[in-house]
Design a binder for these strands. Structure first.
Length: 752
DNA sequence: GTACAGACTTAGGAACATTACT
DNA sequence: AGTAATGTTCCTAAGTCTGTAC
């Protein structure tokens, strides 16, 4: 695995964050303004398709109709449908929501397994119980919750050869470290990673929790806060008023200036109005929400201005809620829940150009909620006078609570915190899969290179797509329902308009320029030299296609993943992202760390390695609003420190001269003191300079996402141990909790 | 094979808390 | 002490991928 496998250097410089004005829908308009801020425009203009016989776009309609022929003689099929859809739905996008309104969705059938076969297992000869403990099932009911480490750290039978050797070593070791007692966590940390895992899809044996915390009920506005329509005061009915406040709260946000947002909001708002209101309020432009907006701003000011005691009180109240609802009991252990609060009602804020932005996200009530818990647990109580939609006992899933959301009709869940066993195990397993890929990636690469020559179009497309996924860490790119979401793509869903081919560019041959919106409408821009065969294939794939045709018309994620599954057990497209991210970190950290550097400099190296990964994965952020200013401040500080240093040096010099003359103890001591001062200041200066570099380089790059989701934490832990860097410098408290397994098990020679 | 539901991971930004600075 | 900068947590949208039914 060589570092030059990637070619992302210019991605960051060129990649500018795409704002919401970016419209893929209006593809013709699009063409003109899409790249307006882009320096590469000229080259683009010059470039015409490599094939001189490329059809004139004017015969497009005709062409659209006929089935496209491929070299392998096959015709285009399933993908056409989506394209047609995309075009059509541009027209009609807004009415989609009714069909999936939650209230009408028939409840997904509850599997209430018969008593005798509750823990239904595909293989009845094999007990599902975890093997770590010998006794009966009742062990999983919390007669008393285990708070100390399990005595027996049995071996996992899984693939993790690496840990088998270490796993048992310090099962007691950590018991001695009682520093967390100082905090409010009297319990010893449970080392789930030293225990057996479930097999056969059972996720837990016992689960008990208190259910969700609902959003606070709507509090009507005080009567002095008025709403005006067409300049006249109007008292709104409570329902209409509530929805109005959602809009009022966002008045300062750019969202409220957008047509789609306003249109969607107004449509949904009207549904909440009484018939009189509906008759009167017909134009959003005539609505004046400013008093409401002012009122809410005042409220948040007031909240900030609370006295220390009052703030303390609120904090305590929150803490109580957390203690009561923020934890569950899963198989003998108290585990933290991630999101125990139900999402409050409000206006939907999609990312990018979302066709549904501004729609009303309705209030979730107990009747919408499905509870999942053990049969033999104490069920959560619905609020007085209400009922849950359903209580089920499905131990093949990890969620505690679910409901159906009304914007997309998708299901939302309450699940456990990343520090929990159930999340941690999965995370660990993810990295193990990536490490297995490491062992066979050469073979897979050889194979896809071979497939570039295949007689079959579908194989070639698969192979080129896989090459992109591997080389550029692109996401798989599932098809999306058109008109339901922002128009974003991943690898398999790339369209012809998203790439440009340059037989020669900036002295390099066979350059591909990518420019598309990925997940969260984050722009991916990259120019990459590719192998000649890839280039030729791309030309072939693009032949006789329109800009909005699929580049890989014979491929989708399901085909790709099926293929990957055959190459390696558990292999899917996203494993490549994990693998390439982690292997890059490992290489970079090795390459960049200087043994003789001090700790801050080493951490800079680490951050740079992390940054290389973030760039690879295209993890961007909006440059902080205060970026320039804070950079300036830092520079000022650096200058001041420089002055301070030269002063200190001067003083040292004169002290030395002084000591030379007097030769007494006192002046010698003074020299020592001055020396120390100089040293200290030098260090401080260095630290500041490092900080400045780090920050500058980090302007538009988000490190957090890769750190949290792509980098095998054991690589980082090993690096810390190797160089004597406290792990706190790399991971904050939350991160340390999430990666407790890695911190515990990895030693300095861990290799990904 | 395709459409859809479901479950779960990944993602950036907002809100909030803490620390550093004046 | 008050304010600004920075770090952390919360929030929830937007992906991936699997399973199932036709």
């Amino acid at each position: 695995m060589s570092g030059d496998h990637y070619h992302n250097e210019d991605q960051i410089n060129c990649g500018s964050r795409v704002n919401d004005s970016h419209k893929h829908k209006d593809k013709y308009k699009e063409k003109e303004h899409k790249h307006k801020d882009h320096k590469k425009d000229k080259e683009r203009e010059k470039f015409k398709h490599g094939n001189s016989d490329h059809k004139d776009p004017s015969d497009k309609k005709h062409r659209d109709k006929e089935k496209m022929k491929h070299k392998d003689g096959s015709t285009d099929k399933f993908k056409d449908k989506h394209k047609e859809k995309r075009k059509e739905e541009k027209m009609k996008s807004f009415d989609g929501r009714i069909k999936k309104e939650n209230g009408f969705a028939s409840p997904p059938h509850v599997k209430s397994e018969p008593e005798d076969d509750f823990y239904h297992s595909p293989r009845h000869d094999k007990p599902l119980k975890r093997e770590r403990d010998d006794d009966n099932d009742s062990e999983f009911k919390p007669k008393k919750i285990k708070t100390e480490n399990d005595k027996k750290a049995k071996k996992r039978k899984q693939e993790d050869e690496d840990f088998k050797s270490k796993k048992t070593k310090n099962k007691k070791g950590e018991v001695t470290d009682g520093k967390k007692k100082a905090k409010k966590e009297p319990e010893e940390k449970w080392k789930w990673w030293e225990e057996e895992r479930y097999t056969d899809g059972v996720k837990w044996k016992f689960l008990e929790h208190k259910g969700p915390v609902f959003a606070p009920p709507y509090e009507p506005l005080p009567s002095h806060v008025k709403f005006y329509y067409d300049g006249k005061h109007m008292k709104l009915s409570p329902d209409a008023e509530e929805v109005a406040t959602f809009f009022a709260k966002m008045l300062d946000h750019e969202y409220t200036t957008k047509d789609i947002f306003r249109k969607n909001f107004f449509k949904d708002w009207r549904k909440e109005m009484t018939s009189e209101e509906k008759a009167k309020i017909t134009d959003l432009k005539k609505c004046d929400f400013t008093e409401m907006s002012v009122f809410f701003k005042g409220q948040s000011e007031a909240r900030k201005a609370l006295t220390r005691e009052e703030k303390q009180k609120i904090k305590e109240e929150n803490e109580r809620t957390l203690q009561e609802y923020g934890f569950c009991i899963m198989d003998n252990h108290k585990e933290r829940i991630a999101n125990f609060r139900i999402e409050p009602p409000g206006l939907f804020r999609g990312r990018g150009d979302h066709p549904k932005m501004g729609m009303l996200k309705r209030r979730i009530r107990p009747g919408d909620i499905i509870i999942n818990c053990s049969k033999d647990s104490k069920y959560p109580e619905p609020p007085p006078g209400t009922k849950w939609k359903e209580v089920r006992h499905d131990n093949k899933v990890t969620w505690l609570v679910s409901w159906t959301e009304n914007i997309q009709g998708s299901i939302k869940y309450i699940m456990l915190n990343p520090s929990s066993r159930i999340k941690g195990e999965k995370d660990w397993q993810k990295y193990e899969t990536a490490r297995r890929l490491k062992k066979c990636v050469d073979r897979i690469r050889a194979q896809y290179r071979d497939d570039w020559k295949s007689k079959e179009m579908r194989i070639r497309q698969r192979a080129v797509a896989l090459y992109f996924i591997d080389k550029l860490a692109l996401r798989a790119g599932n098809e999306k329902e058109e008109g339901e979401t922002a128009d974003t793509v991943g690898c398999c869903s790339l369209r012809v308009e998203h790439i440009k081919l340059y037989p020669e560019k900036d002295g390099q041959e066979f350059v591909v320029e990518f420019d598309f919106l990925g997940k969260d409408s984050i722009r991916y821009y990259n120019t990459v030299p590719v192998e000649k065969r890839v280039f030729k294939n791309l030309q072939l794939f693009m032949e006789n296609k329109e800009p909005d045709d699929d580049l890989f018309d014979r491929l989708n994620t399901s085909i790709l993943n099926k293929h990957l599954q055959e190459l390696m057990d558990g292999l899917t497209a996203k494993v490549f992202r994990t693998y390439n991210a982690s292997i890059t970190l490992q290489q970079q950290v090795k390459e960049l760390t200087n043994a003789e550097d001090n700790i801050p400099a080493k951490i800079l190296s680490y951050n740079r390695a992390n940054r290389a990964v973030a760039i690879l994965c295209n993890h961007q952020r909006a440059p902080p609003k205060t970026f320039e200013k804070s950079m300036q401040n830092l520079q000022t500080k650096i200058d001041a420190k420089r002055n301070q240093l030269s002063d200190a040096k001067r003083e040292l010099k004169s002290a030395k001269a002084d000591a030379k003359m007097r030769k007494d103890e006192k002046s010698k001591k003074a020299v020592e003191t001055k020396k120390k001062a100089v040293q200290r200041i030098e260090e401080q200066l260095m630290k500041l300079e490092v900080q400045a570099t780090d920050r500058e380089e980090n302007k538009q790059i988000a490190l957090g996402t890769s750190k949290l989701n792509y980098l095998d934490p054991r690589i980082s832990v090993a690096w810390c141990k190797k160089w004597g860097i406290p792990v706190e410098k790399i991971y904050n408290k939350t991160q340390r909790e999430k990666f407790a397994w890695a911190i515990d098990m990895a030693d300095e020679d861990y290799e990904f």
